[in-house]
Design a binder for these strands. Structure first.
Lengths: 234, 234
DNA sequence: CACCGTACTCGTACGCTGTACGAGCCCGCA
DNA sequence: TGCGGGCTCGTACAGCGTACGAGTACGGTG
């Protein structure tokens, strides 16, 4: 058949870029688990097997998608001190990971890092080394920061609300479930068996909400400050 | 057919426990991605559909497996100060996650937490509250620690070596690839383009190796110490 | 003894996945 | 005019989760 030149518009030609961007868009819209080769091809107005001329298999497709995500993360600036540089790239990382939620959990679990990932890696290590960290300390500092950043993103992705307001709403609802069916012994027993959890959910989050950004930056600054102190004494 | 009473041994009767434990064993042996209902049934000498009398679907099967993993994590002790209690449960968490590598990445991403997960959650919050943290600080402290612990486990799972010795071997090999085919312009250019990465891989890890346990505890203590200081000033 | 309900087992089948294979089309070059 | 290579995609296959319903065994109850 070649290309369908008939009544329908002649489809824009495929390309690796188009495939990759369509895949990212599809993952963003419907979630990564419903990204299938057939749906992706449909989205592009092509047959499923056509994709395999631009990508050797699905695994590699995911690798390349991930590397695009990495490429969107701001490299640490060399114009400022290491702490502000690292702070910025951490915040940038979280922003990018929030923009591409589907990527969280895949990023750290890909076996073969792409060029953007390697470049970022190198830049971060460089920032720390130039900032006066010894090699050993650099490795430690890198490890702590990345574990925190990706771990936080992982938690954030899987909690059932996005904004502080929404978190308050969800928490309030959960709390009402606790209270409302107090006759339901199970619910009452729950609140009694897990008082601290109840306190946090009902007593605090339901009241003031949970601000992910603030929480992230709190932990981030805690870590950066601690690293700063240890840099001097190492 | 009922039960096969013929030449073969009459198979031990199925049960939810047997199904769950067989699933965990299979995931440990062959990896989580090759845990399928059919293989699991084979492992138990049963037909695939028999499993569905003990577990409503695969998703729930995973949930229950994960909750067993959670149940193996030591609850924070109430006999010691919060810092040692938290330190112990963090180390216990990492141990359990290393014992059940397949669970890393699934644990934080399950939507419906099981009872063991809730109990642990509650105990950790309780430990911090009783340790003198305000509600706000408790939430922050919890968030930082868990992000770090699970983030670290995630990194650890996906790096291509297990022990410090092995890490040195792998790094050395990588470094040799860099040096050996120096005629291959690509490799030489890589080392030049990413000098800090090369320094860490070739110059340090290849020499002394990378000790996950030490790295984990370094970051953990850094965080706990920082939390300790902030507890007083909050 | 006969009968029945309940618990359990599992063969078959359906819709979905990734992808191997090879046929067909188009286009530039000889 | 013919040929070769790039691109497209229909078909097919193995493997997945699981719905459905038929089969067997067993513990009461008449």
């Amino acid at each position: 058949m070649g290309r369908p030149q008939h009544a329908t518009h002649p489809r824009a030609p495929l390309s690796k870029e188009r495939v990759l961007h369509a895949a990212i868009a599809l993952a963003a819209r419907d979630g990564i688990e419903s990204l299938t080769m057939r749906k992706l091809a449909d989205e592009l107005g092509a047959g499923a097997m056509s994709l395999y001329h631009y990508v050797p298999n699905k695994e590699r497709l995911l690798d390349e998608m991930i590397d695009i995500v990495f490429s969107e993360i701001e490299l640490p600036s060399t114009d400022v001190d290491w702490k502000t540089a690292m702070r910025r790239r951490a915040i940038s990382t979280r922003e990018v990971l929030n923009r591409h939620r589907w990527a969280v959990g895949l990023m750290e679990s890909r076996k073969t890092p792409g060029p953007a990932s390697i470049r970022l890696h190198n830049a971060v290590l460089g920032c720390l080394r130039e900032g006066g960290f010894s090699i050993e300390m650099t490795i430690h500092a890198y490890s702590v920061q990345d574990a925190y950043i990706y771990g936080f993103a992982l938690q954030e992705k899987n909690l059932p609300f996005d904004t502080a307001e929404e978190s308050a709403a969800v928490a309030e609802e959960q709390a009402r479930h606790f209270a409302e069916r107090a006759e339901d012994r199970r619910a009452a027993a729950l609140a009694e068996e897990f008082p601290y959890l109840a306190e946090v959910v009902a007593g605090h989050v339901a009241e003031v909400g949970y601000d992910f950004t603030a929480a992230f930056e709190y932990g981030l600054d805690l870590i950066l400050d601690a690293l700063d102190k240890r840099r001097d004494t190492a």
